[in-house]
Design a protein around this nucleic acid. Sequence first.
DNA 1: CTTTAATTCTATCGATTAAATAGAGTAATG
DNA 2: CATTACTCTATTTAATCGATAGAATTAAAG
Lengths: 146, 146
Amino acid sequence: MKLSKSGEYALRALIFLALRYNKNKDAIVKIQEISLGERIPKKFLESILLKLKKAGILKSSRGTGGGYSLNKAPEEITLAQVIRIIDGPLAPLGCASVTAHVYCPEEKNCGLQKVMKDVRNAISGILDHYTLHDVLLRTSIANEDG
Amino acid sequence: MKLSKSGEYALRALIFLALRYNKNKDAIVKIQEISLGERIPKKFLESILLKLKKAGILKSSRGTGGGYSLNKAPEEITLAQVIRIIDGPLAPLGCASVTAHVYCPEEKNCGLQKVMKDVRNAISGILDHYTLHDVLLRTSIANEDG
DNA sequence: CTTTAATTCTATCGATTAAATAGAGTAATG
DNA sequence: CATTACTCTATTTAATCGATAGAATTAAAG
């Protein structure tokens, strides 16, 4: 039931960016800065940020002084959105997924599917309502004076 | 957040065996029978069943007329047990795991960890209390007369 | 009691996917 | 036009999934 490395890195990078956003809405952060700060392989992080940009979560500017920043307020970005972009559906089984349902022949009659739908709903009940802002609230360093 | 193929196959195979168990507590089922019935690659299934045996969930007998059967009643086997044996901890992140906690330096101060612990607890709240017996109850075919 | 057939067990190899690295290409700044 | 940093493509490495080959064990047949 683990989150992929990509998914984990995506969340950590976004939290990093959200922290900057809260200090200065227009802050631009280099990939390398995130990479060093969160100990994420730089080139790997690059591909993750690109996906998040294409999905509208981030915006970027190139050249000297370029970098990434949030394209929405932290309150508007849920953890579930991010995970779905990077890792796909939240459901443990394809046949229990709402966003990318995979048909299976014994569907009507599958006890396992029913349980896994319960699990999916429990997960999305948390992650669909949890935003980057909420994560920062639970991170004490975010509340310290700079 | 997906379950691995191994994990899914393990659960399906055990449900298959639990169905037989309920008809006849001493029924012995061949790997091939499960493989055909659940469309699981036979040799791959073999390695999964072996792990479940070593973990005490299944017992086996070799030679002609041999095969596998449950080593406990379906009421005593939770889905969480099975997933932990095959796929490892339920937690989305190592640092949020109870059974195999991985230390991370910003632990005390990590909002992400706190959320993922909530998710872990939600998942285990369901899977630790859900047994093979419960799955069969939600599978209508299990209640038909043979 | 020996052979044969059925079955689990062990070990390894190939294919596919995920994770990580490398480098060339493109755009912006000064 | 040189530097900086994002963007893109390609390659390498590691993990997972699935397949293959054969040894070990048991039961039944002859």
